[in-house]
Design a protein around this nucleic acid. Structure first.
Length: 298
DNA sequence: GCCCAGGGCTATG
DNA sequence: CATAGCCATGGG
């Protein structure tokens, strides 16, 4: 079967898949096998060409948000040397449009966990409750549809822990159509509605709204984002997450969600170097930002 | 043994 | 509104 390709601009497959927004990918001999809900396809990138197999080209474009004007998006939040270094290092990272149910399960599982463990939890429930599919001799199990799990005991036996009961509750609410009703809602209403699912508070809600529904005005605050934001913009002082979100929204603008993802992966991979650079050549932007924060202008 | 990881919930000041 | 203790678990 012939491999088709899409010509891309400002796209980096590796950064997009590996930045922590999405868990169900495997790299086999430099080819990424991507599994999202019932879609199972492979992709690899050679320069501007994105080769793919197993899915429709329009799906690939939509999934990787290739229809978005990334340079314009980046221009809206590229405000200081920190974020601009993040953008330089991870150029081409795009926010994915994931399936809402898979994204919901993924981030319910993310509570007090870590990426390798979330990935394993997702693999486990897929193997236990999902359907097997294969492509070019590579097999994978789909995330079980809402209603296909309903087994807290078995999830606990497989180390999903206290999150297990949340998954069961989310299944029932998904069957009731809650994830479909989100579409088209204003951000705050959508957030309020999705937070009625047990196990979903603001952080997880924001991840789901950002990574599957395309709400760019979200700013999920996890431990890494809390670290970098307090370090860079609050003089290292402890601040409530709400303050961090407020500041980020005013400071980075309409596409804060994108800024968040660049900052997140930058911080995870370069935290030690960021600490080292603080107080040296990077200290030119801070005083203005700090004084504006202190004066309540930002 | 400790602390941390893409937190949330509940009870209590 | 802010905080404390709790929930489960694997890795450093």
């Amino acid at each position: 079967m012939a491999m088709r390709y899409i010509l891309t601009e400002e796209f980096n497959l590796k950064h997009t898949l590996e930045c922590g927004q999405f868990f169900r990918w495997k790299n086999i001999n430099d080819v990424y096998y991507v599994h999202n809900r019932d879609a199972f396809f492979n992709v690899y990138q050679e320069g501007a060409k994105l080769f793919y197999e197993g899915a429709d080209g329009n799906f690939i474009k939509r999934f990787f948000s290739l229809d978005e004007n990334l340079p314009h998006i980046i221009n809206t939040f590229n405000k200081d040397k920190y974020i601009s270094e993040a953008v330089r290092l991870y150029r081409g990272l795009r926010i994915i449009r994931q399936d809402p149910w898979e994204c919901t399960v993924s981030f319910i599982l993310s509570a007090a966990s870590n990426i390798p463990r979330i990935t394993k939890n997702l693999e486990d429930i897929s193997r236990l409750f999902g359907k097997k599919v294969s492509l070019n001799g590579v097999s994978s199990y789909s995330i079980p549809a809402p209603g296909a799990i309903r087994d807290e005991k078995r999830m606990r036996e497989n180390k999903l822990g206290f999150r297990s009961k949340f998954i069961v509750a989310a299944e029932e609410m998904a069957l009731d159509g809650i994830l479909d009703r989100i579409k088209g809602m204003p951000y705050r209403e959508a957030e309020e509605l999705i937070m009625t699912i047990p196990g979903i508070a603001e952080k997880v809600a924001d991840c789901i709204l950002l990574f599957s529904y395309g709400y760019m005005e979200t700013f999920p605050v996890d431990t890494w984002i809390r670290k970098i934001m307090t370090e860079l913009y609050f003089d290292g002082k402890k601040v409530p997450d709400k303050k961090i979100r407020e500041f980020a929204t005013k400071y980075f603008g309409r596409y804060v969600g994108y800024a968040q993802e660049y900052l997140y992966i930058y911080t995870r991979n370069h935290w030690d170097r960021i600490r080292e650079l603080r107080g040296r050549q990077f200290n030119s932007v801070e005083p203005a930002v700090f004084s504006n924060v202190a004066a309540g202008r930002l």
